[in-house]
């Protein structure tokens, strides 16, 4: 963590795929800057030799047997679709 956290809001909003207005950018930058300042305190904690916890109670090997079950009908799968055609979700043409 740097002394004064730098949050590049343009880059982060781009990664998060959210269009922000200039006003929102200014507001969020300021607010999150405060939050990040608060979060800076974490660097005071001695974490050497400490294992990270991804789960509060990690259990290993949680799985299911490979038995196929019925899923949704195409109709149910598409019932909330904002746009569809030929039983598929339609989006503006994707150019890679």
């Amino acid at each position: 963590m740097s002394e004064t956290p730098e949050l590049n809001i343009d880059r982060v909003a781009e990664l998060a795929r959210i269009a922000l207005t200039p006003a929102e950018k200014a507001e969020y930058s300021a607010q999150l800057g405060e939050v990040l300042k608060h979060i800076e305190q974490l660097k005071q904690v001695d974490v050497s030799g400490v294992e990270p916890s991804a789960h509060a109670f990690a259990v290993e090997n949680v799985w299911a047997d490979d038995v196929a079950q019925a899923g949704l009908t195409a109709e149910a799968a598409l019932q909330n679709a904002p746009a569809q055609r030929d039983n598929m979700i339609a989006v503006p043409k994707v150019v890679e």
Partner: peptide
Amino acid sequence: RVGQGYGFDENTLTD
């Protein structure tokens, strides 16, 4: 656990 495979009608292997 929904089935997987090739050549099924569109969006019939979902859950």
